[in-house]
Design a protein around this nucleic acid. Sequence first.
RNA 1: GAGACGCUAGCUCAGUCGGUAGAGCAACUGCCUUUUAAGCAGUGGGUCCGGGGUUCGAUCCCCCGGCGUCUCACCA
Length: 493
Amino acid sequence: MEDTSSLIQIRIDKIKEIRENFGVNPFPYRYDITAYSKEIIDNFDSYFESEKKVSVAGRIMAMRVMGKASFCTIQDRDGKIQLYLAENKLGDEIYSLFKKLDLGDIIGVKGIVKKSKTGEITVFADEFTLLTKNIRPLPVVKEKDGETFDLFADKELRYRNRQIDLIVTPGVKETFLKRIQIIKNIKRILDSKEFLEVETPVLQPVYGGAAASPFTSHHNALDINLYLRISLEPYLKRLIVGGFDRVYEIGKCFRNEGIDRTHNPEFTMLELYQAYGDYNDMMALAEELIVDTVMKVNGSPKVNFDGKEIDLTTPWKKIKMTDAIKEYSGLDVMAMSDEDLQAAVKKHGGELKGDYIRGLAINELFELLVEDKLIAPTFVTHQPVETTPLCKPDIEDERFLQRFELFINGTEFANAYSESNDPVFQRKTLYDQSLRREVDEEAPPMDENFVQAIEAGMPPTGGMGIGIDRLVMLLTGESTIRDILLFPTMKPE
RNA sequence: GAGACGCUAGCUCAGUCGGUAGAGCAACUGCCUUUUAAGCAGUGGGUCCGGGGUUCGAUCCCCCGGCGUCUCACCA
């Protein structure tokens, strides 16, 4: 969208002409809409019989001028509708103003609803008002019998100019409306269970709750570095300590990593914490949140993704990580020696950072051999204790955690713990993790204030994180994260 | 991080075996009172991503760079 100067200049000149020759303000202040396109089309009979006048407004998407009468198609909030404008109804002057308009202009029309000779539902204009003059031409996308022509195909331009994409590319608006519905429904369910929606700091002096490289910023007045959060966990847990009992936040997290089909530097996470609950409660809640939402937005528990049909009907399979490895690869990691584990990781192309740690080797084997095979929803439980410092060990076998990860279509959709709340244990595990920074730059630094918060006493708590973007991708069938983010991160032009 | 591919008019794309370029839509000027990818006639519109090289001559060939798309790898 660069040098369109001559096309733009022609339209700027039109603005002047409209003001001077027609005495019309091309940018008036308001307009009363009484009906939207979809409602009129859905209820044509009653509009037709009542001969009630409607006021509609929208953007001109197509114009068919035939001398002294014209058809044009406008697009409003809900869809498209055809208008009929005739010189003998509107008068010479206003009709000739209409003929000067361009695709992309926004107009309002008042008139009655009838069908044209070819049967198309049409608003026959008695009055016509220019509401906004466009000066930057839109891509022209044509349509016939559901087939589209000259689609706005350049993905880069679509992402950089999403407002244009929303106007001209069929289906884009619907995808984002669905995203909005998904988030709204999740909030509705959590609100109904007395979870409180809260807002916690995005700018943090110490980041944590995950392993990732942060974005670093600087506060001038305080002369300190601040980090954009990589997770919501540390502050939400402070609120559990503070007595809120059930909290959640749906918000942006930021990770300074690569960009690809499933990763954007800023992305939306849901994290929720339930005092006096554990990871089993989180499992039930995960099923309810996702299944209720898919039913609400899609009307079916089955979704099509990557050409696969995925059935989200509950209950979902539950399997311990070590059993999953056995089931999918035949390796009995419980019976394997450390040497055999190391050899197996190497054999399958894995890599272990720093000194050998048995639990991390088991987790690595899971990622190498099992993860992408878990297409139907599967709760993988009992990860090795070394995989996270923030989770309680299982009662029956302290080498493993009271944790689950939910996998669908080979990717992680949720991660939940019986949250660690033993402050002595917590201080040790977080300190140990901070030491790993020497071999793993993604390990977060020690967070003394967080540990002190836990020292005040955090009740037994179940917590869960769900990647909202991936959930939206699953339920919309979009396989590229950029297609479900209104404004994905782009390099500057 | 690797590979493939792409970047030509506002949009979608052709094209030039190296001689500075075309279509459709959009725009502009006419005609047209039931059209719908409206139609008919005419007109204008381009740093062919940027820089260097080869060449009499580069948008085309070569090199470097930029940006992008896709695939793979990485990613608590």
